[in-house]
Write a protein that binds this DNA or RNA. Sequence first.
DNA 1: GAGGTGTTGAGAAGAAGTCGCAATAACGGC
DNA 2: GCCGTTATTGCGACTTCTTCTCAACACCTC
Lengths: 133, 133
Amino acid sequence: MARPRNTKQKAAVLAAVKGANHHPDAKWVYGVVSREIPDISLGTVYRALASLSAEGLIKEYQQADGPSLYDPNTEEHFHIRCSSCGRIQDVPPVTLPNEMFEAIRQASEFARVDQFRLEFGGICAICAEETRD
Amino acid sequence: MARPRNTKQKAAVLAAVKGANHHPDAKWVYGVVSREIPDISLGTVYRALASLSAEGLIKEYQQADGPSLYDPNTEEHFHIRCSSCGRIQDVPPVTLPNEMFEAIRQASEFARVDQFRLEFGGICAICAEETRD
DNA sequence: GAGGTGTTGAGAAGAAGTCGCAATAACGGC
DNA sequence: GCCGTTATTGCGACTTCTTCTCAACACCTC
């Protein structure tokens, strides 16, 4: 594994993600970075995003039904999605009781059960306000 | 919404999914059904799978990092994935405590938090056996 | 500042799925 | 059983998201 280099493209991609007040996808990052580096290519944005998440500077969040999103927040956390508008927001991490893992291990006959992926869903305040009439 | 018709294509797709001993994707179903109906098209398989899951006869399971899988088991259940071989297996459903939803609601300032998506990860028995030396 | 080699830009290619449309075939009525 | 309506099919083109190829470029070390 070679030592990654610091290029202005990667720096600009990192700045764009860190400066986002939401969870941007590659296209959005491309749009932002293009203003600064007009001839950057989308492929480079994808490579920079992959490289930055490999370095732990950002986090990739693979959606089940849409493009990967990139998260400036590298602290451990979870997400909640508004089922009405699709907005995604960070929430603090939660833990599951050990008995739950043990129950799943027994039911599945897996040798080890030590990971989980959890995301919440609901209605955000804005959508709740809008649909109230 | 029109009344769906029963076609041999849809029946064959349903039979293929129900007969699978795993969680097949559209391509696998296409491969199986093709042996019976050689000139079925992949588009038809996709449409049949969508229609069957809308009717509740099968369940679509959207993966974050791969094609949608289709689940013959329509009972409520969750999944566990082996992080080594990718095998996906059903596990019984679990519930999360109300306090967790309430905590997430407060932290997120969402109007409502009433859904979650949870999947487990670990090492299946077969992979555990293989890597033990 | 020269050299080695990560990186880039551009576009092609790949993976997964959807769409438009003419032809076909279910199914309810007669 | 035949008809007509219209849902469904097959086919290919298209969309979206992402990765790959490859020659040219530009970091970084010495």
